[in-house]
């Protein structure tokens, strides 16, 4: 199995992101800070077998988000996200 064949979609990050956001993050329209593509977070690519979870743009593969859970902490790096559009 290659890393690509183990790749998941953004819905795999739903559980971790529900620790942080009060809304369903997988439905949030997410603009990639690398290429500007906008899509629901659920269609982004997720690499979940590293020590943390890495979310990448499905168009340019830029890293948009990293999530790690350590004892007593959830770490979230969103520096690759240009914007989240959340329907309210």
């Amino acid at each position: 199995m290659t890393p690509e064949s183990r790749r998941l979609d953004g819905n795999a990050a739903a559980g971790r992101l529900s620790d942080v956001f009060v809304f369903d993050a997988t439905a949030a329209r997410t603009r990639c800070g690398g290429c500007g593509m906008t899509a629901p977070l659920g269609v982004y690519h997720v690499y979940a077998d590293a020590p943390g979870m890495v979310v990448r743009c499905p168009t340019c593969e830029a890293m948009v988000m990293r999530i790690a859970q350590t004892p007593g902490h959830t770490w979230l790096d969103m520096s690759g996200v240009a914007a989240l559009d959340i329907s309210t």
Binding site: T2, P3, D49, G52, V54
Partner: peptide, 9 residues
């Protein structure tokens, strides 16, 4: 020998 990866190879 597990392969752990944070992105495409």
């Amino acid at each position: 020998f597990p392969v752990l990866s944070a992105g495409p190879t």
